[in-house]
Design a protein around this nucleic acid. Structure first.
Lengths: 330, 330
DNA sequence: TTGAAAGCGCTAACAA
DNA sequence: TTGTTAGCGCTTTCAA
C-alpha cells in the first residue's frame, strides 16, 4: 500500500490538512514544510492523483481521440501531444474510435467519466450530432480538423488550402504543367475538400482548365491511389501530372506506374501532400507539401492545457503552415 | 454538472445503493433496475469512473510506457494495445519517457498515482534500478522486451532469436551466401543482442566463418545503416550480403548503395528485420523477417488485463513469431 | 500558521 | 430486495 498523507501527518505530528498544504502552495511555515517533505521522501510518497483529481473535479489527464490509429501520421501526432502534455505535467490518454465506438460516443463517455480534464478531438468531418454534443460539453476541448469554420471552438488545422494552392501554382508556374488531374480524398473529409478547393481555385486563378474526367475521388489509401491511377491511364486524353491529395495515394500511383513501366515524371508526373517518410525513399522522390503534424499536436495540447488552467482567452483558430518539398516526381 | 447516482436515486425514489447495484451486478429486482436504467438514460448518466476507481482502488486505465514515440513501429503497437483494451472496456494511457523522464521514474510515479491499474512496459534493456522497482511493484504489469529471461515477470517478446536464425539460415542454405556481414542494433538493447546471437549461432551451426570486420554495431537508425554501409564498402575483403538487424538500417544501406550506383543484390545483397511499410516500397524490395508488433501489443494487453482481473495464473513468457518475407534485395 | 471537519461520487459491508 | 452508513485520499472551508 502506497503511503498517504495520513501517514505522513502522523509521523510529522501535524494534521493531514497541513500535509496537504505542504504539497500545494498553501500557507505553511517553512520548517514544517521542510519536515513534511523530508518524511514524504523517506516514505517514497507520491500523491494519489486519482483522489486529488476526484476531489478537485478536474484531471491532469487529457484525452486524445482519434478516428483510428493507423499510420505514421498519428504516431507523429501522438508524439507531439505527449511531448507537450509531459512538459506541463499532464498525461495523455489515447482513445481511438473504431467501428463499434463512434466519436460522439467516445467523447460523451469520456466527458462524464471524470477520467480526463480536457479533450483533443480529431474530426475528419462534422456531424450535427457531434456539434450538439460539443455545444453542451462541459470540459475544455480542442479540435483538430481540416476546416476551422465549424463554430466557436478551438481549432487547429493543417493549412490545407494554402498547401494545395501553393502546390498547384508551383505545378503551373514553375513546372509549366497545364493538364492536371486531382485525386481527392473522400469528400466527406474536411482536409480532402479543402485541398480540392485550393487546387481548383489555383487553377481558376491561373486560367487553367481542368477536364471533369481528371477530377477523381479516392480515400487517402494507397490502394485507392493505385486504382485511380489505373483509371487515369485508361483516359485517351491524359493529364501531364497527377496531384494526389495525400502522399499515400501518390505512392499508389507511383507503384502502379512502376509495375507497368510508365516513367515518372517523363510520361506522367505525380505530387502529393504530407511528406511521409516513404516519400523521400521511393523512386522517384515524391514532390509534396510537408505537413508538420507533430506541430499540430503540440499546438493543440498547448491551447487545451491553457484553457484547462483557466486562462480562458477567446477561442483560437490556428493553421499550421506547410512547406514545399521538391523532389523528382514532377 | 453531470448527473450522479444521487439524482437518479431521488427521481427513482430509491437509495443510492440501489442505483449503484443497478449499474453493477448487484441483487436487484428487475423492475427496479429497469426504472433506474430508464431514468439514467433520460439524464444521460455516465458513471464517474474517477470516483469508482478511487473507491475500488483500482483503475480501468492501463499505462503504456514507451522509451520514445517515434516510428511506425510504436504506432502499430499502440493500435494493438488500444484495440484490446477497448474490447475489455479499458482505456490506454500512453506515456513516453524522454530524456528528462526515465523509465524508472515514470513507472514509480504512475504506480502511486492511482491513475492506472496496470502497466505495459517496453524495456529496451534492463537496469538493476528498474528490476528493484519492479520487484517492489504493487500493480500488475507486463514487460515487452527482446529478452524474456529477466526474472519472474510477464514478458512478451518478438521471437528475435528465431527470426535471426531463420533469416541467416535462409541466406546460407537457400541463397548460398557464405560471406555475411551483420550490422547489429545497439548492444545494450536486448533485441539487438539476441538477433546478433541468432545470426552468430546459425553461422556456427552451418559452419560459416564470419570475419570480425564484418561484425558492426549500429543503433537501429537509418543513418547508422548508411554509415555502416560506407564502412563495409571500404573493406578490401567485402561480404556478399549484409544482414542489418532492422529494416531501417537496411534501408540506410540501400540508400547509399543507390547513391553510389552500387547494384543490389548484384554487387552486394541486403536483408533486414521488421518489415516496415517502406520495405515493400523501396527498390529493390527488402527481404526481411516480418514482425507482428500489433500482435505483441494485443498479447501484452490481454495478459495484463487478465492479471488485473485477478485471474492470476503464473507469469507468462510469450514469444511472437516472425515470418520470412522474400523480396529482391538478396 | 495550523487543525477539525465536511464532502467529492461511488462501493460495500451490514442491517432491515 | 432494499436502505443506511462508513469510508476511499484528498482539498478546502471555517475556526482556532
Amino acid at each position: 500500500m502506497a503511503a498517504t498523507i495520513k501517514e505522513i501527518a502522523i509521523r510529522a505530528k501535524v494534521s493531514i490538512a497541513t500535509v496537504s498544504r505542504a504539497f500545494n502552495d498553501g500557507k505553511i511555515k517553512p520548517e514544517t514544510k521542510k519536515k513534511i517533505l523530508e518524511i514524504a521522501g523517506e516514505l517514497n510518497y507520491n500523491p494519489n492523483l486519482l483522489a486529488r483529481n476526484f476531489v478537485k473535479k478536474q484531471s491532469n489527464v487529457i484525452g486524445l481521440i482519434l478516428p483510428d490509429i493507423t499510420d505514421e501520421f498519428f504516431s507523429e501526432l501522438i508524439r507531439g501531444v505527449d511531448e507537450t502534455t509531459f512538459k506541463y505535467g499532464y498525461y495523455t490518454m489515447v482513445i481511438s474510435s473504431h467501428k463499434n465506438r463512434s466519436l460522439v460516443e467516445s467523447v460523451s463517455q469520456l466527458n462524464s467519466s471524470g477520467l480526463v480534464g480536457g479533450i483533443i478531438l480529431l474530426v475528419p468531418h462534422f456531424s450535427d450530432e457531434l456539434k450538439n454534443m460539443l455545444d453542451s460539453n462541459k470540459i475544455p476541448f480542442v479540435i483538430i480538423s481540416g476546416e476551422s469554420n465549424i463554430g466557436n471552438y478551438n481549432v487547429v488545422s493543417i493549412d490545407n488550402y494554402h498547401a494545395a494552392y501553393t502546390l498547384t501554382k508551383y505545378l503551373i508556374k514553375k513546372k509549366g504543367y497545364t493538364r492536371i488531374a486531382h485525386i481527392s480524398g473522400p469528400l466527406d473529409n474536411f482536409d480532402a475538400v479543402i485541398r480540392k478547393k485550393g487546387f481548383l481555385d489555383a487553377c481558376r486563378d491561373l486560367k487553367i482548365k481542368i477536364k471533369n474526367e481528371w477530377l477523381l475521388e479516392g480515400d487517402f489509401s494507397r490502394k485507392s491511389g493505385e486504382q485511380n491511377f489505373k483509371n487515369i491511364w485508361k483516359l485517351t486524353d491524359k493529364p501531364e501530372v497527377i496531384f494526389a491529395s495525400n502522399d499515400m495515394m501518390a505512392i499508389g500511383c507511383i507503384t502502379i506506374a512502376d509495375e507497368r513501366g510508365i516513367r515518372i515524371p517523363a510520361e506522367i508526373a505525380v505530387v502529393g501532400v504530407d511528406d511521409v517518410f516513404v516519400s523521400g525513399i521511393i523512386k522517384p522522390g515524391l514532390t509534396t507539401m510537408k505537413v508538420f503534424i507533430d506541430k499540430v499536436g503540440r499546438t493543440a495540447s498547448k491551447i487545451l492545457i491553457e484553457s484547462m488552467q483557466g486562462k480562458k482567452k477567446k477561442k483560437q483558430k490556428i493553421k499550421i503552415r506547410t512547406e514545399l518539398i521538391e523532389r523528382l516526381s514532377c
